[in-house]
Write a protein that binds this DNA or RNA. Structure first.
Length: 260
DNA sequence: ATGGCGGTGGAGCACCGA
């Protein structure tokens, strides 16, 4: 079973890319982030025509997450539990059933947190605390679980071309990295790091300053696997070539192959 | 680090977000 994550930076602007990559890579499940549209505006006809069921948690202009699946989608949870006042659409979770088993998947769009010194950074850290709490609950189920998405965290210096350039950025703060490690320490496996231990593999290249041409990238899109999913991990890859397509997202797809 | 992108409102372009 192939499970992917991709921050598309507006699904309306990226529908052609999305359909092209679905056909190329044939993932079973795709976690999308930054839809930047309400549920009604999601390009459902095009995605369904490509053979996918859809669960959407959209929002006007900003955020928005979705789960696509070739298999039935059940038990959908929209919104990260733990704060009724949080109206930002950054989390959707569901169970995907296949003939060979069941996997629980979450599509995560963790807050960016910039600029430091504003309310955005504590919002990010608080959101991470809620994610940790949710992950603890889900781990109790002792089932294959994949928490996939744009974490907006550069876990270590190995995960940036120019780590020193990110020193003052919310993505690389010790508090952000500490909470990411706290999440991992619950028992998750960082799938890409497990398959590609040497670093220098990136998932995001800024639109500015020729970042792509200089390979000035960072690794911020992660697939975290519960022990029951990690036991079945066959491979994890980055679809880097997609960044060179015309009018690309600034993120590329990342996907795992699980022996499920 | 800064050479860009997509959203909104409202009808040309400032401003926001990331």
């Amino acid at each position: 079973m192939r499970i992917a994550t991709w921050n598309v930076n507006s699904v309306k602007q990226r529908t052609e890319h999305l359909v092209a990559w679905l056909k190329e890579a044939s993932p079973d499940v795709v976690c999308l982030q930054e839809l930047k549209c309400v549920d009604e505006a999601f390009p459902a006809l095009e995605i369904e025509a490509a053979g996918y069921n859809i669960a959407v948690h959209g929002q006007k202009a900003f955020n928005g997450v979705a789960i696509l699946s070739k298999h039935p989608i059940e038990d959908v949870v929209r919104g990260l539990p733990g704060d009724e006042a949080d109206v930002q659409s950054r989390y959707i979770e569901a169970v995907v059933s296949t003939a060979t088993g069941v996997v629980r998947v979450a599509s995560i769009y963790l807050p960016n947190g910039n600029p430091l010194g504003t309310e955005k950074f504590p919002y990010k850290l608080g959101w991470m605390d809620r994610l940790i709490a949710r992950a603890q609950e889900l781990l109790k189920l002792e089932e294959p679980l994949v928490l996939a998405g744009d974490y907006n965290v550069i876990p270590t210096a190995l995960d940036a071309k120019f780590p020193e350039a990110w020193a003052g950025d919310a993505l690389a703060q010790p508090e952000s990295r500490g909470k990411f490690r706290q999440l991992l320490s619950l028992g998750f496996t960082d799938a890409l790091r497990a398959c590609d231990p040497d670093g220098a593999t990136y998932t995001f290249w800024d639109y500015q300053a020729g970042a792509w041409q200089r390979n000035n990238g960072i690794r911020i899109d992660h697939l975290l696997l519960s022990p029951q999913a990690a036991d079945r991990l066959a491979d994890c890859r980055v679809a880097k070539h997609v960044r060179a397509w015309d009018k690309p997202s600034d993120h590329v797809p990342v996907y795992v192959d699980l022996m499920l």
